[in-house]
Amino acid sequence: MRSFLKRLLGHSSGRIGAFIVCLYLAIALAAWVGITPYDPLKQFRIDRLQGPSAAHWMGTDMFGRDVMSRLMIGIGQSFLVAFSSVGIAALVGTLLGLTAAWFGRLWDGVVMRLMDVLLAFPAILLALLFITVVGPGTFTSILAIAFVYTPIFTRVVRGPALSIRARDFVDAARTFGSSTSYILTRHLMLNLVAPLTVQVTLALAWSLLTESGLSFLGLGTQPPNSSLGLMLADSINLMEMAPWLLIFPGLTVMLGILGFNLLGDALRDLLDPRMRRAAA
């Protein structure tokens, strides 16, 4: 484990990615426990639409609220949605993919065709459809994003699971009479940790983007709560007058996605044995 961390930090994009992700995580944690420069909802009426200054590092918005505090809360909110949705998607997707690969036949057919149908829709459209049916809100956007990314995890798990299932050590386990749950958890899951880790990291980047998109359209986080997409949506009409309202949330989204993508690429390099051999 320690040597793995060392190798990750030795990988150039892994180092940058890990740094960005850790920074964001720290900010999100601070926002959750309430450590922000100002109350994000407090309106400084006199200081409306102020540019960056010593008092308000990232300026204030049209209600005189501190942008930096709102940004921190926004990151916390985006992370909450991203992590919960990817967590749900990974859990459900793994379960479906694993059972589809193991039991095969009809179950495999039903699950995979269903996933094919879901994959055929553009992600945002599918999430929109889901939200239209259920109604907007934080919880709904978590479910919507989880719904969209479940098929990806199902596929990522099913492929390797099929090939591991055919390995001799699984046959050996069957000759001992090991239970199905033991084989699934000890033999299949343990060997799936590597591809799953990579997929989770990359999916976090996408879901961060999807969450921002949904909030931007007014279908995710609802005001007066703060989220990155919502801040971007509020800023477009004031773009020429107060560009900092657009620039800081925009940069935050971009940098966050970059961080997760760099980390995901680095993990893929380090965990994929084929890559490792090429590097050696």
Partner: peptide, 17 residues
Amino acid sequence: KPMQMVFQNPYASLNPR
């Protein structure tokens, strides 16, 4: 379980993890 088996390929018959 009176019968047990040893497989041909010792590299494939042990879970590497």
